[in-house]
Design a protein around this nucleic acid. Structure first.
Length: 574
RNA sequence: CGGGGCGUAGCGCAGCCUGGCAGCGCGCCUGCUUUGGGAGCAGGAUGUCGCAGGUUCAAAUCCUGCCGCCCCGACCA
């Protein structure tokens, strides 16, 4: 490719709304442009990177035995009603009607479509297992898109779906995908870790997220310092604290206190001169249409993902004021466990609390010295909070470490969630009808590219790993009006292309400094500088972007050096 | 959805408070010089001042409504 012919608008200045490095560099490097909030165009340079990532994904999926398909982006409501997600998915699912007034949606993920496809054409255990994947545009109507293509509404995703005869088979499919994902992200030159994760909207029993380590990541991760436990903090288990023996003689008498207009934990603490650790926070949730009171120590937060999975519910939201009134006979701010008219679930943080402050279920009143057993009963204790620095590893009790990461891939064991809802069955050897056991596996293509930038850049710009670089080499004749330089550059250009190297020739009539800066900015791994001083000795310079090392070589040596270097780099990551 | 900010040339911004010629830097075009880390000089082009309405002799500027974008939170994978 000749730079002079390429649509590659690089820039010195960038829109001030770019918050993270990858976003600002992708804009400056002429890779992407925003059309509207959360929706981006890829320019030629950006699209070359996307295609590189896709190609690695294809090769590894195919190697793992998956087959590529291409499913529709527009999907009928009926399928989503069948799985139950038409109701459940919420506003993130972009819905619309076609001219026949039929309800449709733009696919945010494709479990319904693939399950429909497979149930119609797979009838016997002889046709299983199968793993089908596609690379396709997904649409999720994000509440707040941000960070460029990192969290956007329209994005390209690789999604794969496995169908097995039983759990054992599904486990093997899952492991194959886990292995393939590890290879994919290694080949993309990323430092990553797989962590246990919540299954969220997709559902299923178990999942791992592949996290690219980066301080700008949206996810908080926790790792054990000695065993290999690693989890998203949303999922990370907190061990049940040891229950201390209850000494009823230490219970102080109940005390009802007039606390006018004192509602929040901070207000209660200030008013009663206690710490948040002394106060019980009572949150009323509406869980599949019935209220549930959740107790947590005042300094802790409820992790809704954990609560959702503990309760095994379809819908979960904080209760409205009417519901709170029904359950507590009082307005918001005075709920407590004593005589509350709902099911009670308590977080582990509550286990050893004594003489605590609770709402009185009476407007403008709180109660001091409330004690479990004497004043109210709690039968359900669960892990509903967020893991903290002071907690220890749930597997081995060792100290924990925290880090941030970018979720680039997610693998799920779905079980029979979709096959049951949508009746995807097969006949086994004994002629018995059984549900297929499914798994699903996603990779954010654009996000993977952006994550690579978050890990590989310097003050001058992007530093692509060779495997996903838009070009492997850039040739920079320092002055194209000097015929000898241009001739040599052209010769190298042809020679390298003949050897299968991806080359961009900077044949623009620009000063050397401009060309060097653009080469660094767009992050091409190798740059050949063709300049008058070296050429007088028959030599050119090859500069390695990531290390800054320079080799002075003849044209033939340079070609060989480059071919070898590129091969070695590609091998190193695979 | 709540809170905050912004919207003026392709990009980054000033001007708005206190109404009165539409500005600056970068980029772009032409010419000359220059040519190994974002060149210099000279000349030039480019605006629905987000949209609509109102106040006024006069609105980028004041008022009202709407739209868009960004940040924080809520929500959501």
């Amino acid at each position: 490719m000749r730079y002079s012919e390429m649509f590659l608008p690089t820039g010195r200045e960038i829109p001030s709304d770019a918050e993270i490095v990858s976003h600002w560099l992708m804009i400056r490097a002429g890779m992407i442009r925003k059309l509207t909030s959360g929706i981006y165009s890829y320019l030629p340079l950006g699209f070359r990177v996307i295609k590189k990532v896709e190609q690695i994904v294809r090769e590894e999926m195919n190697r793992a035995g998956a087959q590529e398909v291409f499913l529709p982006a527009v999907q009928p409501a009926e399928l989503w009603q069948e799985s139950g997600r038409w109701q459940q998915y919420g506003k993130e699912l972009l819905r619309f009607r076609d001219r026949q007034d039929r309800e449709c949606c733009l696919g945010p993920t494709h479990e319904e479509v693939i399950t429909d496809l497979v149930r119609n054409d797979v009838k016997t255990y002889r046709q299983l297992p199968r793993n089908l994947y596609q690379i396709q545009t997904k649409f999720r109507d994000e509440v707040r898109p941000r960070f460029g293509i990192m969290r956007c509404k329209e994005f390209s995703m690789k999604d794969a779906y496995s169908f097995d005869v039983d759990e054992k088979g599904a486990e093997i499919s899952y492991e194959k995908m886990f292995e393939a994902y590890s290879r994919i992200f290694s080949r993309c030159g990323l430092k990553f870790r797989a962590v246990e994760a919540d299954t969220g909207n997709i559902g299923g029993s178990f999942s791992h997220e592949f996290m690219v380590m980066a301080d700008t990541g949206e996810d908080a991760l926790v790792f054990c310092s000695s065993c290999d436990y690693a989890a998203n903090v949303e999922k990370a288990e907190v061990s049940m604290p040891e229950k201390k023996a209850v000494d009823e003689s230490a219970f102080s008498p109940l005390e009802e206190i007039h606390t006018p207009d004192v509602r929040t934990i901070e207000e209660v603490c200030a008013f009663l001169d206690v710490t948040p650790q002394d106060v019980v926070k009572t949150l009323i949730f509406l869980v599949d249409d019935s209220p549930v009171a959740v107790l947590v120590r005042g300094d802790e937060e409820i992790n809704e993902a954990k609560l959702r999975s503990y309760l095994g519910c379809d819908s979960l939201e904080l209760a409205t004021d009417d519901i709170i009134y029904e359950v507590t006979d009082s307005p918001r701010g005075f709920a407590g466990p004593i005589n509350i008219k709902s099911r009670i679930v308590a977080d582990y943080s509550f286990v050893n609390m004594t003489n605590c402050v609770v709402g009185a279920n009476k407007e403008d009143y709180h109660i001091k010295n409330a004690n479990i057993g004497r004043d109210f009963k709690v039968t359900e204790f669960a892990d509903l909070g967020l893991i903290k620095e002071t907690d220890s590893c749930p597997r081995c009790e060792s100290p924990l470490r925290f880090a941030r990461g970018i979720e680039v891939g997610h693998v799920f064991k779905l079980g029979t969630k979709y096959s049951k809802a949508m009746k995807a069955t097969y006949l086994d050897k004994d002629g018995k009808e059984k549900y297929m056991v499914m798994g699903c596996y996603g990779i954010g293509i654009g996000r993977t590219a952006a994550a690579s930038i978050e890990q590989n850049y310097d003050d001058n710009g992007i530093i692509w790993p060779v495997s996903i670089a838009p070009f492997q080499v850039m040739i920079t004749p320092v002055n194209i009006k000097d015929e000898a330089l241009l001739t040599t550059a052209e010769k190298l250009y042809q020679g390298l292309m003949d050897k299968g190297i991806e080359v961009i020739l900077d044949d623009r009539d620009e000063r050397a400094g401009v060309k060097f800066n653009d080469a660094d900015l767009i992050g091409i791994p190798l740059r050949i500088t063709v300049g008058p001083k070296r050429l007088a000795e028959g030599k050119v310079e090859v500069k390695i972007r990531k290390s800054g090392e320079v080799e002075i070589l003849s044209v033939d040596e340079a070609e060989k050096f480059i071919v070898d270097w590129v091969q070695a780099e590609l091998k190193a990551d695979s």
